[in-house]
Design a protein around this nucleic acid. Structure first.
Lengths: 196, 196
DNA sequence: CGAAAATTTGACATGACTCAACTGGAGTGG
DNA sequence: CCACTCCAGTTGAGTCATGTCAAATTTTCG
């Protein structure tokens, strides 16, 4: 696949949701920059402003936070056709509280806040796309939050592997523990328990 | 205050963030319906589609979910100048998983999905307002989620009363416990501990 | 005033954490 | 190709925060 093919993934994605003209497709395609990232690389990090919003074309990422005790907490794993960034930081310029790390070699389309403003001016319909996207993210997080405070860790674990089958092949176990909000030792013990 | 005054609260709120014309203010004001709600009343409930998005002008509300064990979990308390609804349900028509209940007599401006679509067609800039609003909500929830899985209940309690001083006068203690994700007995004991 | 609801207290159970030791596999360099 | 290291995962023992259930007390409100 070449650059144009990768950008077509994005414009197709948008077209499916919004119906955009050929001209708009070109504006969009030229507003985003194609980047590839190596395994373990950090695309942005906690403490610095996040001036990148990415649309994942290929690969796997994790978005996580390190708390003041030094514990990592995975907010999400990202896959192709996902938008990932730290919106709060991206929009305000304040330091990010999140880290975005590559788990599997990734190809993504990226944009910075200034370019995004320009793009939104040129193609205002995209406001709607981004609204719907964030709305989706919010519903998902809401659901996860409620699950986290209402169900125990084994229930959350089973829910995760049902919702994302194959995740255990893609992501090391201690990161799954971190996603579930528990320690690796606890997840290990829990899995043993579940085998009965 | 009369109806026009209440609607002015909304148009002022929007004007502060977007700069809208007098004409647009009128369109907005006429798209929303003024409603008042009594203490304990449910504005929408779990299991039924939520066809209401509210802008609180006066009063206090709580948005909560009841899980399959019958436990209530408070997602948020809402105060004047907040938007409250169940976006997932509002936009798709699927049954809501949330309940919105009045804690203190409330006056709010409400809109249904069809009216909102019409309004957004007439005043497309509002797409941006709603995007920013949801974005804010998402950042807040993200932060809360991370706090919930990284800090213990007493830390979360202290954070809450610092962030919302006076909340203990407005909201019964068992609902604060529910907001914190713990049981009322635990909160009671915790507070006793903290007095040292 | 009296009933119902909210809060507190007690006794005990349990899920998850902590810290430390051990195991096993993947990769590296001699 | 082996020895070595490093990291992920497992296991063990003890602790702690919070849950559970039941009873006592206080507050709220009709």
């Amino acid at each position: 696949m070449n650059e144009a093919d990768y950008k077509k993934v994005l414009t197709d994605y948008i077209d499916k949701r919004l119906n955009i003209s050929e001209e708009e497709k070109e504006i969009i395609a030229s507003s985003y920059t194609l980047k590839s990232f190596q395994k373990k690389e950090h695309i942005f990090s906690q403490g610095k402003p996040c001036s990148i919003e990415t649309f994942v074309v290929k690969g796997t990422l994790r978005l996580y936070h390190v708390d003041n005790k030094g514990q990592e907490h995975v907010l999400l794993f990202a896959f192709p056709e996902w938008w990932v960034g730290d919106m709060a930081s991206f929009n305000t310029g304040e330091p990010s509280s999140l880290n975005l790390q590559v788990l599997e070699e990734t190809i993504a389309l990226v944009i910075d806040p200034t370019e995004k403003e320009v793009l939104l001016k040129k193609v205002p319909k995209l406001e709607r796309l981004f609204r719907l996207m964030i709305q989706k993210n919010l519903s998902v997080l809401q659901k996860r939050f409620l699950l986290t405070i209402s169900a125990n860790a084994s229930y959350r674990y089973l829910e995760l592997i049902e919702r994302s089958p194959g995740i255990e092949q893609l992501v090391p176990q201690h990161q799954i523990a971190s996603y579930l909000g528990i320690h690796p030792e606890s997840l290990s013990r829990m899995k043993k328990q579940l085998l009965k």
